[in-house]
Design a protein around this nucleic acid. Structure first.
Lengths: 223, 223
DNA sequence: CTCGACGATTTTGCATACAAAAAAGCGTTG
DNA sequence: CAACGCTTTTTTGTATGCAAAATCGTCGAG
C-alpha cells in the first residue's frame, strides 16, 4: 500500500476523510477548493481529485458548477444506512463465525476481555470506546475472509462515522454496547452463526435507535 | 440529474463506464490518459478526474505513478464478489417482499410474464435476456424502498458486468435463470420473504458456479 | 546468452493559466 | 421598500506546461 511516495492527492484524500469522520468538517458545510489547496500548500488539481474520490465514497457531495459540501445525510438516508449496515454486519458475524481461524478467534476474545468500559462521564471514555469498538468490528470484517465484503462493510461504517459519537451519548450506551458485543462474541465462539448474526443486527439497530433519540432530542429538522 | 450542461468529466465517466461494462474495454487492459483525452477531444484533466471516480467505484485500478488499467478481478475476488452480491440480493428480496407496493408487485409480475426466454443459440437471445435480467433485479432493488441499499446492490452488480455474458453461456443457463426468477417471484408474491431470500441466494450462487465453470473451461490462470 | 547499468522516451503528478458559469453587489425603477 | 437588470467578483471547469518518476532500449560486462 504505502509505496515510497504517496501522491499528494492520496494524502489530501486521507486527511480530508479523517477530518470528516472526526467531525472537524461538519456535514453540510461548504468546501472551497482554493481554500483547501492553500491550506495544504498544494494546487487545486490534487484537491479536486481527492474530492472526486471522496464523492464516490459518499463522504462529500458535488453539484456541478455549484461546489462541494460535506455530505449531509438526511434522516431518511441515515435510517437506510443503518439498516444496510445492520444487515451487513450481521452477514459479517455469520461468515466470521464459520471462517475465523483459531488465532483470529483468540485475538477477538482477548480484545473483548481486556477492554473495560468506563462510565461515559469520564474524560476520554468515549474515545477509548470508539477505539475498541472500531477494532472489534474491524476484526470481525477480517474474520469473514472475504475482502470485498470487509471493504464494503468498512466503507459503510466510515460513512456513518461523523455521527457515531452521538450514538453513545446518554442511556449508558457504552456499557450496553459492550454487553451486546459480549453476547455476539459468545454465540460466535459457540459456532452459532445465525444467532450471532441476529444479535449483531439487534446491536446495530439499538445503536441506530439511540442515535435517532439523540437527534430528535436536538430537534433537528428533516432537511 | 441531467442539468443543462453535463460536465466533461461526467460525460467521460459515463462513456468509460459503459465501455467497460459492455466489455469494449477488457479487464486488465491498460488505459492511457493522453490517448483517452485525444479520443474524447478533451484534455487530460477531465479524463483523470473521471478515472479517479471510476477507481473509487472499483471499475478501474490506479497504481500511483504506474498508470491505470481496467479492473481485473482475480478468481478469488470474483468469488468474494459473487458471495457478497448473493447475500445482498437475498437481502433485497427479503426487504422487497415486505415492502413492495401493489403497483411494484404488479409491474414485476408483468415483466416476468411478458418475457419469454429464447434458446441461447438464437441471435440476440443473450442480449434480450440481459435486458430483462437487469430490469428484474433493478425492480427488486427499488422494491426495498431503501435507496442506499439499492445503490449498493446496483454498484456491486455493475462491478460484475464485464463478466456477466459469460454467466449465461451453455448449460441452458438462460432458461434456468428465468425459472429461478420465477421461483423467487412466487415466494415474494406469497409474502414468504425468507424463502425468497434463500432462493435468490441460490440463484446468484448458481450463476456464480456457471461462470466459474466457464472460466475454468477457458483455462484462465489464477492471476 | 543473460544480466545489469545507463541514457532516452514516455507517462504520470502537479502547478498554473484561462474561460465560463454562479454568486454577489449595486444602482435603477415600479 | 421590493424587484429587476446590469456589472463585478468569485468559483468552478478545462487546458496547457513542466518536472519527476517509470519504462524502454541500447550497450557492455560477465
Amino acid at each position: 500500500m504505502s509505496c515510497v511516495s504517496p501522491t499528494l492527492t492520496e494524502t489530501i484524500r486521507l486527511r480530508l476523510a479523517e477530518e470528516i469522520t472526526a467531525g472537524h468538517l461538519t456535514p453540510g458545510s461548504e468546501i472551497d477548493e482554493s481554500a483547501l489547496a492553500e491550506r495544504f500548500g498544494a494546487s487545486r488539481t490534487p484537491v479536486r481529485e481527492a474530492l472526486r474520490e471522496l464523492a464516490a465514497a459518499g463522504m462529500v457531495e458535488i453539484t456541478p458548477r455549484r461546489g462541494v459540501r460535506v455530505a449531509r445525510v438526511t434522516l431518511e438516508e441515515l435510517g437506510e444506512l443503518f439498516e444496510l449496515l445492520a444487515e451487513t454486519e450481521a452477514m459479517c458475524a455469520r461468515f466470521a463465525t464459520w471462517r475465523m481461524t483459531a488465532n483470529e478467534r483468540f485475538a477477538l476474545q482477548q480484545l473483548q476481555e481486556e477492554f473495560h468500559p468506563r462510565p461515559e462521564e469520564e474524560e476520554g471514555a468515549l474515545t477509548a470506546y470508539d477505539n475498541y469498538n472500531h477494532r472489534f468490528h474491524q476484526m470481525l470484517y477480517q474474520g469473514t475472509h472475504n475482502r470485498v465484503l470487509a471493504e464494503h462493510a468498512a466503507g459503510l461504517r466510515q460513512r456513518l462515522a461523523p455521527y457515531r459519537r452521538a450514538q453513545f451519548r446518554g442511556d449508558r450506551r457504552i456499557e450496553r454496547s459492550y454487553a451486546e458485543h459480549q453476547a455476539v462474541l459468545e454465540r460466535m465462539l459457540r459456532g452459532a452463526g445465525e444467532e450471532a448474526a441476529q444479535l449483531m443486527r439487534a446491536h446495530m439497530l439499538s445503536a441506530s435507535a439511540s442515535l435517532a433519540r439523540y437527534i430528535r432530542g436536538l430537534g433537528v429538522t428533516e432537511r
